[in-house]
Design a protein around this nucleic acid. Structure first.
Lengths: 147, 147
DNA sequence: TGCTAAACTGACGTTAACGTAAAGTTCTCG
DNA sequence: CGAGAACTTTACGTTAACGTCAGTTTAGCA
């Protein structure tokens, strides 16, 4: 949507697009957070697509917003990883049952993320309420002081 | 409120009450996140109050919920630290201007925390919306599949 | 075709946030 | 008052998440 589909990106470009560094990207691949570019064309250089950039952004977002470790992220995204790998397979899958399974897995995976997000939101709401309350109390005291 | 006021706690008890370890508490003191128990009675053992337990819980909460580093927390809580130290001073402060200043500092500090919390909530809201949307899309696809 | 920027693979370095072990001290309770 | 549990300081160890450096290889373009 933003760029030409099928555009091949190199690691440096991906790094810049996602606000990280090549080293970070290689590290994520090393620990299995990004798909192992074992199948790296015939050449040596890693090459990425827009989808990879999107995935990287997702990872960084979840990491920052939820404060998850990379290991936790790996587990959380396992399903998505599999789904990404099966993406083309899905397109060509004649088998409706297979398509259904893939979609359902994706749904479960999204549900998992949603659970984490809403739970975190709940806790932040609670904290916010307490802070507002404290703030109110302090303002009352200030008012009394002026009386 | 929960326990007898003025109860003196030792580091091990505080650790258990806050779900951490003595080492962590000492470390937090070492980096200035907890008040330096320089004034540690005549004996050697650190001793704490309920207020210290509350503060420790606050720290852990902010750390976990906002994913702040201990250094960031230090800065964020600097004002509160000063306030805590001035707590008794506040009680006896004849000077209304001083009392006002202390209250206002506390208010500013709470405002700082609130800003972080609401901002984080906003981002989580955004993420939640996107996840819900994706979830909806997937369900639609599943429905189409059944048709 | 040759040159340079960028990428590659090790491999070791770094920082935060503690864990852990050792050797000595202090509390507290029978 | 004596013994063991809990505390003290000091210091080195550990893990995650990269940074950095060196030496080599690849990509692409003048």
């Amino acid at each position: 949507m933003s760029t030409v589909a099928g555009k091949r990106l190199r690691i440096g470009e991906v790094a810049e697009l996602t606000g990280t560094t090549p080293r970070t990207i290689r590290y994520y691949e090393e620990i299995g957070l990004l798909p192992d570019s074992g199948a790296r064309a015939q050449g040596q250089h890693r090459c990425y697509t827009d989808a990879d950039v999107a995935r990287m952004r997702e990872i960084l977002r979840l990491k920052d917003l939820l404060g998850l470790s990379l290991e936790q992220l790996s587990k959380l995204l396992e399903a998505e990883t599999a789904r990404a790998e099966l993406r083309q397979e899905y397109q060509q899958a004649e088998d409706a049952a297979t398509q259904r399974r893939i979609l359902e897995e994706a749904l479960g995976h999204i549900a998992g993320q949603l659970e984490l997000v809403t739970d975190r939101k709940r806790q932040l709401d609670q904290l916010e309420r307490e802070l507002v309350e404290r703030s109110r109390t302090l303002r009352e005291r200030l008012a009394e002081l002026s009386a």
